[in-house]
Computed example of a mutant assay.
Amino acid sequence: MCHVEADLAETVRPGWLSRWETTSRHLTLGKLIGLGRFGQVIQGTLHTPGGETISVAAKSVRRKNAQCYRNFYREAAILVTVHEDEHHNNAHSNIIQLLGLINETSQKYILMEYASKGSLLRLLRHAQKQNGAAPLEHGFLYAVDIARALRELQRLAITHGDVAARNVLITADHVAKLADFGLGRDVYAPVKDVDDDDKNRENMAENEFIPLNWMSVEVLERGEYTCQSDVWSFGVLLWEIATLGQEPHYGGNPHDNPSCLRLARTLRRGIRLRRPPECSGEMYDVMMSCWHENPSERPSPDEVETRLLRLTPGFEMETVV
């Protein structure tokens, strides 16, 4: 079982910031392309010492408080850990590519590759509007990409914690990349701002919309995030692809947000997301295998990838270095 390190920054070799650091004078910022409660992403251009210009997505904190900065440095540390691993290969990896860090007093950015097609969730919902029930081209092949991302994270004993279509980015070449390792959940906060006083901080857990319906039983009950809980969330990602981006819910009112305890009890009774009308029985079997109550009975990312490749004829399996 591969748990996330309590303080992942400590696992990064000394000097990680200096090895990846660049200065703000090399960055030209453009339009805002993503906005959450605690973080924001701006499209920009990075000017390299060699005179090259690279399109980047620059992630920064939205609020200058301790929680935002903890999330910011956690994401930076995870991406550095991935990219400094001796087996990591940017040409084959399905984890969003880190290009640099700006860590100045007034400006702090994580610089990542710019995925021009945006999030998988946006593509799914656009396909829903355009084609009705027609499947999204490349849909389940994107899932193969994310299974490979989870395989890389599992090898490094890193848990993502929020595997979902909203956190998958699609490049111009139709490659899916797993993103949002530190600020992903901020997009579920209510629109109404909450001041940073003690009272409101205590109430934030009650006011925020947490993505419960992507969470495994052990996460709901004990907050236990592992690679196996990521596989559970991956099964929900497959369901999102099959439904062209519908919001998952377990029956009843789709706008009803159950508590952790109530949803955990529902899952303990064996209730799972229903098979989408356009989803094959074989693909639904893959989803159900990800939702085993016992984490050890869920398939590994390798096993999920193999099963998906069997269900997506014409897609050649590449060797990931």
Rank of each mutant, 00 (worst) to 15 (best):
E5R: 15
A9K: 10
T11C: 05
W16S: 12
W20H: 05
E21T: 07
T22Q: 06
S24D: 10
H26A: 13
H26I: 01
L27V: 14
G30D: 11
K31P: 11
R37Q: 06
F38T: 11
Q40K: 15
Q43D: 04
G44E: 02
T45Y: 08
T45Q: 07
T45F: 07
T45A: 14
T48Y: 00
T53P: 00
V56D: 07
A57P: 11
A57T: 05
A57C: 03
A57M: 01
K59Q: 00
K64A: 14
Y73K: 06
R74L: 08
I78M: 08
E84D: 14
D85E: 08
H88M: 07
N89D: 14
H92Q: 01
N94D: 02
Q97C: 08
Q97V: 03
L98I: 09
L99R: 12
E104S: 09
L111G: 02
E113M: 01
S116V: 12
A127H: 01
P135W: 13
H138L: 12
D145K: 10
R148C: 06
Q154M: 13
A157G: 13
I158R: 02
H160D: 09
G161K: 00
V168A: 01
D173K: 11
D173T: 03
D173Y: 05
V175M: 03
A179D: 06
A179W: 00
G184N: 03
P190I: 06
D193A: 10
D193T: 12
V194F: 12
V194P: 01
D195P: 08
E202H: 07
E208K: 02
I210E: 10
L212S: 09
W214A: 04
M215D: 09
S216N: 02
L220D: 01
E221F: 02
S229Y: 04
W232H: 06
W232Y: 13
S233L: 05
A242C: 13
E247R: 10
N253W: 04
P254F: 04
H255K: 14
P258E: 05
S259A: 03
C260T: 07
L261G: 14
L261W: 01
L263F: 05
A264P: 11
A264V: 05
T266S: 15
T266C: 15
R272I: 10
R274S: 15
E278T: 15
M283F: 14
M283V: 13
D285Q: 12
D285H: 11
V286S: 07
S289V: 06
S289Y: 14
W291S: 13
W291M: 11
P295A: 13
P295R: 02
S300Y: 09
P301S: 13
V304D: 04
E305Q: 14
T312E: 05
